[in-house]
Structure formats: structure tokens, C-alpha cells
Amino acid sequence: MLTLSLIGIGCGDPEQLTLAAIRAINAADLVLIPHKGAAKSDLAELRQAICADVLTSDKTRIAEFDLPVRNAGEADYRRGVDDWHDAVAATWSQEIASHLGSDGRVALLIWGDPSLYDSSLRIARRLDPLPAIEVIPGITSIQALCAAHALPLNGIGEPFLVTTGRRLREGGWPDGTDTVVVMLDGGTAFQSLEPKGLHIWWGAYLGMSDQIIMSGELAEAGPRIVATRQEARERHGWIMDSYILKRRP
């Protein structure tokens, strides 16, 4: 029987791995490590470093593969994502069949946690043949961001909303909450908001040696974050960031 373990590895700091994650990595017969292009090669290298640090089992093999690229120009966003998930699932199935066959345990190391703004669970259910799926939770970028700023996420007895940069840009400030967590922002969607009364806590490369955090009133901190983000993206070739916005009474 084939078992697929989706293992949350946190946001870049190997010390964020749980004991359960370490056990699951060592229980795997095969660990698949995706390549997302030359600009993001350090993400694959970090996964390799984690394996080198925690693997004690001689039976665990590591295989790298090229991840299909999503067509960002697709007019229908959901259709484009759906097609991309099909392509990724086909690649996973091919790599598993090639390196492991139809019996054993295969692991994928998932940035953050597999349940939060990550497509690995949806992709896993498209595999052919369908494996048994095991999920090992990991520290999310939200947790890492709050820890970096020593910030309690919610007000006392108050809700918060987790959304994407695209939704924030298209819909504006959501009703019913004074705290918004923004992930998957390909740009700086907070620039679309009226900054008066808003405070921002921003972080990039959370948990990594290149971590950057900034905070302040949005009117003042926003332009600094935009400039810092652009410079960091040019230097690294990629950026992974998130932020929290709070509305002051």
C-alpha cells in the first residue's frame, strides 16, 4: 500500500520542525523535493539541508523533480489553478511510480502547514493511484509572524480574518473584523486601502537567516515596506511575505 505523508516543516528555521515531523521524515522510503526554478533554488536547498540534519534512516531516498509552472496569465483564475493542480498531481504520480512503485511511504516537505493556503492536500487527492494520506502539522507563517513581532493576533474575544492579497485588493477591507491577516500577496495590496487608522506588521523570509520584519502606522510604514520588499525581491529573485493589518478604534 502507498502512503503519502505531507509534512509541515515551518517557515524556514530547521528548529521549527516538530518531533512528529522528524519521525515522519525518517519513516519515509522516499522524500520528494520540488524545484521551482533557479530563482527559488534555495527553497530546495533548505529542504535538502533539513533532510541531511534529521535523517538517521539508511533506507530513505531523496529525489528532486521539476515542479510544473502555473500559467499566471490565465484569464479564469480558478480554471488556471485547477489545470496547474492536475499537472502537479500527474508529476507527483510519475515521480512516485518511477522511484517507489505502488508500495511504501513517500513524503513531501510542506512549507508552513499543509492546511493553510497550501494546495498539497487538494493535489494529493488527484494522484493515481490514490494513496493513504497522512498530514503532519507545521508552524504557519502566521504563527512565525506574530512571534517575530511579539504580537497577539486577536483582540480579546475578537475574530480575525485570513485572506489573500488578491481578495483584499478586489474587495477592500472586509466587514465584521478589525484584524486581517494577508497571505499570498504577489504585490502590496495594502496600498489599495485608505491608510488612516490602520497599523501593519509585515515580515518576509520568516524563520530564515534573511528574515525581515517591519511595523508601524500604515501611512508611514507602508512606503518603507514597499521599497524594502522591492529591494529584497531583486536581491533574492523571489520573496515570500505576509502581514497583519489592524484597524484602530
Rank of each mutant, 00 (worst) to 15 (best):
V106Y: 02
R122S: 07
D241N: 15
I22L: 05
W201E: 08
A90T: 05
E45W: 08
Q211V: 06
L109H: 07
P195I: 05
K36Y: 04
H149P: 07
D128C: 10
H149W: 06
D178K: 03
D241R: 04
L245A: 10
I123M: 08
I200G: 05
R47S: 08
H199F: 07
T18H: 00
R23G: 01
L109K: 14
A52V: 01
N154A: 15
L32Q: 12
R224L: 13
A144W: 01
L43G: 03
R169Y: 15
A148C: 01
S5K: 13
Y77W: 14
L108T: 02
T91M: 12
A204N: 10
A232W: 08
I96E: 01
R78N: 14
G104W: 09
A232Y: 14
R229W: 09
R125V: 08
L121D: 01
D103R: 15
E74K: 13
I123C: 04
V69R: 15
D76Q: 10
K196W: 08
R105L: 02
G10Y: 09
M214P: 01
L17R: 06
L130M: 14
I110W: 01
I33G: 04
E231I: 09
T164H: 11
A189S: 15
W202T: 09
T164M: 12
C146M: 09
Q211S: 03
Q48G: 04
L145Q: 04
S102P: 00
D42Q: 12
T177N: 03
R61E: 11
Y205R: 15
V69T: 15
A219I: 05
S115D: 14
T56Q: 08
G176H: 10
D58E: 15
R233V: 04
E231F: 07
C51W: 02
D83E: 06
P137I: 05
M240N: 05
G157E: 10
A44H: 08
G10V: 07
S242R: 02
A28T: 07
G157Y: 07
E95S: 10
R229V: 00
G171A: 04
A97I: 00
D185M: 08
I110F: 03
E95W: 06
V181M: 13
N26G: 11
M214Y: 07
P249Y: 05
S192I: 02
G176Y: 12
V31W: 02
R167D: 14
G138H: 06
G176S: 11
A107P: 07
A147E: 05
P195W: 03
G138R: 12
S93Q: 06
R122G: 10
A72V: 14
E234K: 14
V180W: 06
W238A: 00
D86G: 05
A63Y: 06
A44W: 03
Q94P: 00
I212Q: 11
S57W: 01
V81T: 14
Y77F: 13
R78T: 13
A52L: 11
P174I: 11
A52T: 11
C11W: 01
R229C: 02
I136E: 01
E15S: 12
P159H: 13
N71H: 13
T188Q: 12
P159F: 11
R122M: 04
K36T: 13
A227G: 09
P14L: 02
W92G: 08
Y205P: 00
A49D: 13
W202I: 08
C51T: 11
I62E: 04
E234N: 07
V106S: 05
V181E: 12
I9G: 07
S98Y: 12
I110G: 02
G187K: 07
T3Y: 03
